[in-house]
Design a protein around this nucleic acid. Structure first.
Lengths: 213, 213
DNA sequence: CGAAACTTTGATCTCTGTCAAGATTAGTGG
DNA sequence: CCACTAATCTTGACAGAGATCAAAGTTTCG
């Protein structure tokens, strides 16, 4: 689509170091980001400090929605991150200029919604083992779209991040990974896991998250 | 907005009796529905029969998304329901005809996404009591937008539906309602509850679901 | 009225959370 | 490069919220 070239010109490259917050929930969303490199955790906080990680964004993902007044969640860098920053006004003008782009945005929103709903299914119904297994498989599948496929899956995020994503405690994540290793369906390696027969333990659903864009 | 009159002419009124399925997940979405009267439960199923209720739709809500190829969830009537049915092609043409409408759709999608993410926060972090209390308050608030405000909140859905919405078992929902009644923050009445000091028990978050459209 | 569906309540069990102690890894400065 | 400290991760023991199993009570509806 020729419009996408145009979009490039509106972007400013920005960088964040590991752990830095890119934006915070409820802040006015005068900029929108597209992730170029690295991994970003998107999350919401409760007043008492409990946290729900909504997603781990990968290169190609949008952070924040055009047309949303404020950010609906916070985002911070997991490792070094580089982003395209767009001014919201520029982006809005750009989007409004083309029904094609409009439609892309709607389809993007629908995919996001579907992913969130799949996660609801998992959070509401899964055992710890189902949750962790499902997370590993869907993470592997998403990575496979942007890097050469490998059964050794890097896990740049902390155990605490995974726990908050799955609605578990970090000890439970750790124990569950150990259990999966006992079952010989994964092997835990530094900063990642090596997947073997994991799919078979996933009777939870034949579906995995559809990667975006 | 004058376009909304136009939209009326594209609709066919349809009716469903209590318990009937309006559409099923994964089916080709050649029609889109707007809910006129009644309550609809939106849900996903796992192969083994576990169910996640994603939302209870109220009059004014859209069921299914324009531009989505297939339904991402199933929907059935809770009580008698009347709907506006639109052919997807008609609706697509109509939407594409106006950037204003396009934008409304995007904003609708964003609201839906935000609601889903709030529910993730609740499912991942809430105790049974927080979940039930939060459900009652947000349900009351949504109803308040379409019917004269009343502290007696009708609950047309089954306990099982509430349980599947909150990621609990129906016995737990029943027990938790009983506990809230003991605490004198609700009173259980036939087909509903009477709310008294419930907000105070909600330290979970000051936020409640934003009703849609 | 009677059967089926739904809800409540009770007893027990189990998974996950909680608390705590080590082990491992990462980061820093000498 | 190594020693030292802080952060992260693993593992253990125990407790508790919610699940499971079961039965009784209530509502719905033909």
């Amino acid at each position: 689509m020729p419009e996408l070239r145009e979009l490039q010109r509106l972007a400013t490259q920005v960088y964040f170091r590991s752990g830095k917050t890119i934006f915070s929930e409820r802040a006015v969303a005068d900029t929108v980001f597209g992730l170029s490199q690295g991994v970003v955790r998107l999350y919401k906080l409760l007043p008492d400090g409990r946290r729900q990680v909504l997603a781990f964004a990968l290169p190609g993902d949008f952070l924040g929605m055009p047309f949303a007044e404020r950010y609906n969640f916070s985002a911070d860098a997991i490792g070094e991150v580089s982003l395209c920053r767009y001014s919201r006004d520029d982006l809005t003008r750009f989007i409004q200029s083309s029904p094609n782009i409009m439609r892309l945005i709607i389809e993007f929103a629908i995919r996001e919604l579907d992913m969130a709903q799949d996660q609801l299914l998992l959070l509401g119904n899964g055992s710890a083992e189902e949750k962790v297994a499902m997370f590993l498989v869907s993470w592997r599948n998403r990575l496979a779209r942007i890097t050469p496929f490998s059964e050794t899956v890097p896990l740049p995020m902390r155990r605490q991040d995974i726990a908050d994503f799955l609605g578990l405690k970090l000890e439970t994540v750790s124990r569950t990974l150990a259990k999966l290793e006992q079952k010989n369906v994964i092997r835990i390696v530094p900063k990642g896991v090596f997947l073997t027969g994991l799919e078979h333990t996933l009777m939870v659903t034949g579906r995995t998250y559809q990667p975006q864009i």
